[in-house]
């Protein structure tokens, strides 16, 4: 249990998806112009990560790793399907996003109205696929660990985008050199935020 708590805190702050690995940067920069939409996209990311990562974890454990298929019988024990993982992960993500979109549309139209436009965008958000690939590379062992990691990184991403959106709202009123306006200054702000986030690095939990 203690391990899970420390993994949770670690994936929010120390291994923050945006500042430590630059994942999901494209939508991070494109949709952070105001706080309200940033919150919408942030929640959608937490949600999709929390759903897809456990599914991909189970697939990885029981289908993809070497000898994972041995539960089907001794004939399958020698099989190694790990080269298929990219295509399976992305197919799972794309179809779950599609599914979630349809379910949300049917049962919660108000949530759909606020998340709707972001959901299809999320299928190609690198933070989602990145989460699954990190899960595979770091070899999380239990479903609980994988889910904790998913929620933690989702929340980390959420915090990062809301913080940036708040800064950009203020930035709109400041005097920035003309060539740096808009995109340029945003990059530099994100860099400075990243340096600030690095102060979490030494923390041992």
């Amino acid at each position: 249990m203690q391990d899970l708590v420390s993994l949770f805190v670690k994936s929010i702050f120390v291994d923050n998806m945006v500042f430590a690995y630059f994942l999901g940067m494209c939508s991070y920069l494109a949709v952070s112009k105001n706080v309200k939409t940033a919150i919408g996209l942030g929640i959608a990311v937490i949600f999709v990560l929390g759903v897809t990562l456990p599914v991909n974890f189970l697939l990885n454990k029981y289908v993809l790793t070497p000898a994972a298929l041995s539960w089907l019988g001794p004939d399958f024990a020698g099989l190694d399907l790990s080269f298929l993982s990219f295509i399976i992960f992305i197919a799972v993500i794309a179809s779950i996003v599609q599914l979630v979109e349809m379910i949300v549309e049917k049962y919660s139209p108000s949530l759909y109205a606020s998340l709707g436009i972001f959901l299809p965008l999320i299928a190609v958000n690198c933070a989602i696929l990145g989460g699954s690939l990190f899960m595979q590379e770091r070899g999380y062992e239990t479903l609980a660990e994988a889910t904790t990691f998913a929620l933690g990184s989702g929340i980390g991403w959420f915090l990062a985008i809301v913080a940036l959106a708040a800064i950009r709202e203020k930035l709109a009123y400041s005097q920035v050199p003309a060539p740096l306006r808009g995109l340029g200054i945003t990059f530099i702000v994100v860099g400075l935020m990243g340096i600030a986030f690095m102060s979490f690095m030494g923390i041992k939990l």
């Binding site: 945003t186 530099i188 860099g191």
Partner: peptide
């Protein structure tokens, strides 16, 4: 460190 890459792009 990662943040410097962002500043260079800026």
């Amino acid at each position: 460190l990662p943040p410097m890459a962002l500043i260079i792009v800026g």
